[in-house]
Structures are given as structure tokens and as C-alpha cells.
Simulated scan of single mutants.
Amino acid sequence: MTPEPAPVSALRRSVGLVLRRPVRQLGVEAFYSDFMSGLEEMLAAHGRPFVLQVVPDLDDELDAYSRWADSGRVAGVVLVDILDEHDPRLSLVDRLGFAGVALAHPDDAPHHAVVWVDDEAPMRTAVTYLRDLGHTRVGRVAGPDAFAHTRRRTTAFEAAATECGISALVEVADFSGAGGVAAVERLLAAPDPPTALVFDNDVMAAAAASALPARGIDVPGDLSLLAWDDSVLCRSTTPALSAMARDVVALGEHAGTAILRALGHDPQPITTAPPPQLVVRGSTTAPLPPGRERARTSLEP
């Protein structure tokens, strides 16, 4: 006799995470490997399997949730990179019956449990630090501006620059090394280019640090660099990169705790994770005095 299949309630125990990223980029981006480490450790301690799906675009991500719902094996999902405008994933996971937690500001995922990290105060710290070094022109190499957290960081960056009485320029990139270098090229082509840059991740900052000296631009003598999120990559770059450091493994643990509570029908509406802290290393210093700035050559090979 063929045994009857187990009821869906017995099978539906896994927690899923869909990452909309090129697989190659995930291999060098420390943030998600650290985040998943903390998330999976917390889930494993409570007997919850972890399922990861990497997809190229939003349509494939939406399809992944539908397939998980059809399989009856995934009970909850963690949502990342919430979109600035209407994010269809938020309503979809509700319709599919998943417990859900978003890594987002509470206003960007209304009526959903969120794990939130304040970016406004750390951005003010970063910009104020550069101002106090003597920089009056700062640039930001941002991630994709479709993401809500990118918009919030950019708003905080521009507000902090205004408070500090310094000029600010922003260029959007895609979190990749090549994209970051291209954004730096555009910033340095400005009529009055910045003397310090704040990057949205470690990969873009490290790529710029590697490309700049070969083009005759000294780091930090000609251009100071500050990364968002510390990593081994930041510490192994020459010079080592100043960074806004946070415990990303602990952030994953917070997300794990939040989704476990949601699965237990006791959701915590807002879980606040510790904000990034400034770590000063060799990639930031005072700018050259006026009249002594070197001519900036193209970063393109």
C-alpha cells in the first residue's frame, strides 16, 4: 500500500529567502553571506530548514514565491531590497499565506513585521566625520535607486551635507565593482569634483580603491573613500578602507528571531537592529589644500 502523503502542516516548515542578484556578485558581496549565516543559524536552532533561491529579476522572484506556495514546504519568507515604489511582493506573500518579515524601514513595508536598521544617524556621522577632516565636497556612490533603503540613505546623505554646509553629489550604481568604478568616473568628471566619497557597499569601495592609484589618483591623498558595511574586503584593501561597520551576522539573527515569532503567530511589528558604527582606517584623511589638488585622469582603462 502506498503511504498517504504527510499533511501540508507537517511539511511546511522551511523559511525561504529569494535574492535578486547576479550569482557572480554574491560570490564577492560579504553582506548576504554574513546575513544568511546568522539567519540560518537561528533557524537551525529551532528546527527550521532554510531555502535560498537566486533569481535575475522581479518576475522570477514572484514566480519563486508561487512555486514555494504550491510545494507546500515553505512556511515563511524573509524579504530584502524592498522597492521604493509599490512592492508587489508584500501583497503576494500575504495572499499566498506565508508568514513574512521584511528587512526595511517600517514605513516601506506597512502592516508587515520588519527588521529595521537606522541609516539616517550613521549617515550623519559619516558626512560629519568627512566635514571635520576638512572636506567641503563629498560624493555618494549609491546602490540602485529603486530600493527604498537606497532612497533613504541618499536623502540622509543630502540632508547631512546641507547641515554641515558642504556640497554633495550622488551617482547611482548597481553594487558591483565595475558599476562602482563607473560611478566614481562620473563623479570625478564633475566641474567641481568631490574630494571624499561614501559608497553604498564594500565591493564598490574596494574596486575604486584598486582602480584609482593606477590612474594617478592617490587614496587618500587625492580622494578619501568610506565604505558602507565593513568586511574582510575592506580590511585587505590597500589602504584599508574606513567603513560604517555593523554586525551583519547579528542582523541575520534578528531576522531569524523575527520570522520565528511570525511563524508562531506572535509577530513583533518592529525589530530594531544596532546601527552601523564608524571605523576609521587609512582610506580617509584631510583633503589637499586648494591649488594643490592633482589633475584627475579617467578611470577607464
Rank of each mutant, 00 (worst) to 15 (best):
A189V: 10
L96S: 07
F147A: 15
T284K: 01
E185C: 10
V198Y: 00
A173P: 06
A227E: 06
G72C: 08
L251D: 11
V117H: 12
M244I: 02
A295E: 12
Q268P: 14
F98T: 07
L11Y: 02
V127M: 13
L169E: 09
A189G: 13
G216C: 06
V141F: 01
N201P: 04
C164E: 05
P220G: 04
V198R: 00
I166M: 12
T297G: 11
F175V: 04
P49W: 04
F199I: 07
H265M: 14
P267L: 00
E61S: 11
A214Q: 06
L260W: 13
D34K: 04
A183L: 04
L197A: 02
G134T: 10
A189Y: 10
D192F: 14
A207S: 07
W68K: 06
V198L: 09
P275L: 05
V28T: 08
V18D: 02
S9K: 09
R281N: 09
V77P: 09
L83H: 13
A109E: 05
R296G: 00
G38F: 10
A273S: 15
G165F: 07
S33W: 01
M42I: 05
R124P: 11
L260Q: 09
P269L: 00
V115T: 13
W228G: 00
A104H: 01
L62R: 11
P7Y: 12
A207K: 00
D60K: 14
E41N: 05
D192M: 12
A104T: 01
A209G: 00
A10C: 08
A250H: 11
R246N: 13
D230T: 03
A159H: 03
R48V: 14
L241F: 01
D107I: 03
L130N: 01
L169D: 15
G252S: 10
E40T: 15
R186L: 07
P275E: 12
D94H: 05
R73H: 13
S71C: 07
L103Q: 09
A243R: 00
P88M: 12
S210I: 07
M123H: 02
L233H: 03
D174A: 06
V248L: 10
R137G: 12
F31N: 06
L169A: 15
A6Y: 07
S167H: 03
L96F: 03
L17P: 05
T297W: 12
P144V: 10
H105M: 10
R153I: 06
D87A: 15
D229M: 06
A102V: 02
Q268S: 15
W68C: 08
G47N: 01
D202K: 02
L225I: 01
V74D: 05
R292H: 04
R186C: 08
F157L: 09
G179L: 11
A142C: 10
R73Y: 07
A159P: 00
L288S: 06
L169Q: 14
A30M: 09
R95I: 10
V93L: 06
H254M: 04
A121W: 00
H254V: 00
V51Q: 05
A295K: 07
T238N: 12
P287W: 02
M123W: 04
A255M: 02
S33A: 13
D34S: 12
W228T: 01
S14Y: 08
A173T: 06
A146E: 15
A183H: 08
P3D: 11
